[in-house]
């Protein structure tokens, strides 16, 4: 399995606050790789550095062998990103958003087909501001996939989705991976990590405390559920 993402000793601070202290991991081609951790652990900053949105203060990042900052154009063509707090223009319609984002990429997916897979058919003319939280989330996932990326980075994939939509989204993610796309998933929703992830990096306080399969994580923590393992491994020793 070839490596598509390499993060080595990533360090990032905002002023005096250290957001990411020392994070290293690699992601293989076709994996679903989970980044888990508490709020403020440094997950989002890590994926923002992967996406070339932030300049690391230390360490190196290679995405498909390239530097996300220096080779920004090249990396953005091959990496689809779903951001946690990215909104669209209020009056932009679902269909327009899909065609607009499709126009950014050399060989985009069929917007209509993607909308269908995300259960947004019939919503093409609905303005963004009129969508429900779940619909906005699904549109955001569709936009991350419309460029036929080799890697999809999804931050808080199913936040705001009801259980049915969540399961449909999981099925979609598995189907996308079956098509050869590598997926980086940021989450703190344990059932999601358990169901989808091949491997997990557990980040706490800006550092990786564990990397491995969900089963390895359980064994290491001596717990029977991922949620318990997560709590044990990220417990503050105060």
């Amino acid at each position: 399995m070839s490596t598509v993402i390499e993060v080595e000793h990533l360090h990032k601070r905002y002023g005096k606050t250290v957001a990411v202290d020392d994070v290293s991991f690699t992601v293989g081609q076709g994996e679903i790789f989970g980044i888990l951790g508490r709020n403020g652990a440094g997950k989002t900053t890590t994926v923002e550095c992967l996406a070339g949105l932030r300049t690391p203060d230390g360490g190196t990042i290679r995405v498909l062998g390239r530097d996300p900052l220096r080779d920004h154009a090249e990396v953005t063509r091959r990496v689809g990103v779903q951001l946690q707090d990215g909104q669209l223009q209020d009056r932009l319609r679902v269909g327009e958003a899909m065609w607009l984002y499709a126009s950014f990429y050399p060989d985009p997916a069929d917007p209509a087909e993607l909308l269908d897979r995300l259960g947004l058919t019939g919503r093409e003319r609905t303005p963004y501001a009129k969508l429900s939280g779940g619909q906005k989330q699904r549109l955001s996932i569709a936009l991350a996939l419309v460029g036929r990326p080799r890697i999809a980075v999804l931050d808080e994939l199913t936040t705001g989705l009801d259980p049915h939509a969540r399961r449909d989204t999981w099925d979609l993610i598995e189907a996308v991976r079956a098509g050869g796309v590598t997926i980086v998933l940021v989450t703190h929703f344990m059932p999601e990590a358990e169901r989808l992830c091949d491997r997990i990096a557990l980040i706490d306080d800006g550092r990786v405390v564990h990397t491995g399969t969900p089963a390895e994580l359980l064994a290491r923590a001596g717990e029977s559920t991922l949620e318990d393992a997560y709590v044990t491994l990220t417990r503050r020793t105060a």
């Binding site: 996406a51 070339g52 949105l53 154009a73 953005t76 063509r77 990496v79 990103v81 951001l83 707090d85 990215g86 909104q87 669209l88 223009q89 984002y101 126009s103 950014f104 990429y105 936009l143 460029g147």
Partner: peptide, 14 residues
């Protein structure tokens, strides 16, 4: 404010 510009930074369009 909405993150429209930020979202575009992750695409080839910018």
């Amino acid at each position: 404010e909405k993150g429209v510009l930020r979202r575009l930074r992750t695409t080839p369009a910018g």
